[in-house]
Amino acid sequence: MNNPTQTMDIRRDLVALLPRLRRFALTLAGTAEDADRLVREVCSRAIQKSHHWKGEGRIESWLFSLMRTAWSDEIKKRRKTQPSSTPKAQGVVSSAEISTMATSDQILLSLPSGLASVFLLVDVEAFAYGEAAAILGIPEQAFAERLCSARLRLSEIAPEASERRA
């Protein structure tokens, strides 16, 4: 339970998964700075709690759940300490604004709040609806609705992005 080999293993796993953890963190936190802080916090928790991971299923599922919980905690903390300021929320951005965006991060963050995480879990990380909804702590039906909205939104901005690239 407490052996160093297991700890080293999860550290290796975490480093290997780091780009994906960071990408998911970005969809939750909205800024690279907050995302990196969140990844650091979650990796620290995962190492401390590595004995909870029994090697069944995908470790990403456990790590993403930890991350979503950690981010919810962070939002609550911020609300308490700075009631007027909320974490940077993604608002609705017009297609014209999208065309001026330089990086993929900026395009992702232009999605309405919550949609990027939903899209990432199913279309990129290949989770089933039930598992992905459990990771985000939302009902499956609401999850399916958001996923559809995310696809429609991405479809709306896709042509403009293509023109920008061309």
């Binding site: 990408r23 990196d36 990844v39 650091r40 279309d123 990129v124 696809r151 896709a158 992005a161």
Partner: peptide
């Protein structure tokens, strides 16, 4: 919907190419 999915995947793939902070 398919177009949105394909475009979203490309964008997320691009996000993976960004370098990780070494300190992290």
């Amino acid at each position: 919907l398919k177009r949105g999915t394909d475009y979203g995947r490309r964008v997320f793939d691009d996000a993976m190419k960004e370098p990780l902070p070494l300190e992290l």
